[in-house]
Amino acid sequence: MLPLMVPAIITGLIWALPGDPASLICPPSRCSGTQALAERWNLDAGPFQFFVGWLRDALALNFGRSWSAFQGMDVGNLLAEAIPVSLMLVGLASLWIFTGVFGAATGWIHRRLDPLLQTSGMIPVLVLALVGAAIVDLTYGFGSSGQEGQMARIIIGSAVLGLADGAFAGAVAGTRGLFSSESRQRYVGVAILRGERELANTLPNVTPALVGQLRARLLHLLSGAVVVEVMLKINGIGDLLWAGTLEQDFGLVLGTATLFAVGSALLLVLQAMCEVAVALHVRRSPGVQAA
């Protein structure tokens, strides 16, 4: 429902704003008359018709053209170019999260490092992103908007996203907390006395909570990606969303926000599938081999 609700809410907001929607998109200083535009953009017959028309076109992967932020550019093409960039950014950033989870679960990241991680995690994403942007601009100069500059921006952006606002530190602390509370359970103590490994016993029971945590952290990365993309001028979906919102380019906003909603919905589905898989695994009561 999420991918349907988001564009519906945005459509409602367009009509809730004061003034007619076409004039909001193309104000009088820019457009001499908006009646023709309202007809062209299907804004002349109310929110329901607009929403249905947009949905019909979107299902056919036709998102129209940008009205103001990137005038004349195909929104579908903009999204198609932005998706891999944002996926790469979030994907690379999530490596930090997975490393944190793995390191905390296996004890590879020692507890003594926790205060240091917590302190470094307090740096806001805005500050780190600004520093990152300055580094890229100073290093690449005119080429900082080119391909090499974009790649540098993505790599630095992923580090910013993975470390700032306690993303990495939170993954470590959260995972450690889950495992340590589970380790205090009686069955784990018995298993250890039987010579079984602690991780092999706790992992199946911790996994649903761990997957839930991971989903929340990935969503955190997705929302943080908007800030990082804007600050570091990364050609991703978040930057498109920001540009569309600033310019009141509702066609672009609808496309990008729906894409975010689809991403979030996919994560929910993925979480559910993981939980089902774990439940099936636990039901099969697999034997735990003695160490």
């Binding site: 820019r30 953009w41 053209r65 004349g72 050609n235």
Partner: peptide
Amino acid sequence: TAISPDMEFSARPTGTGAYKGARTRRE
């Protein structure tokens, strides 16, 4: 003859000038 700002022409116009222009997100 009704020309709208969101046509592809706004990003990739055809003219008779010395240069053919194409706009991307950053340049």
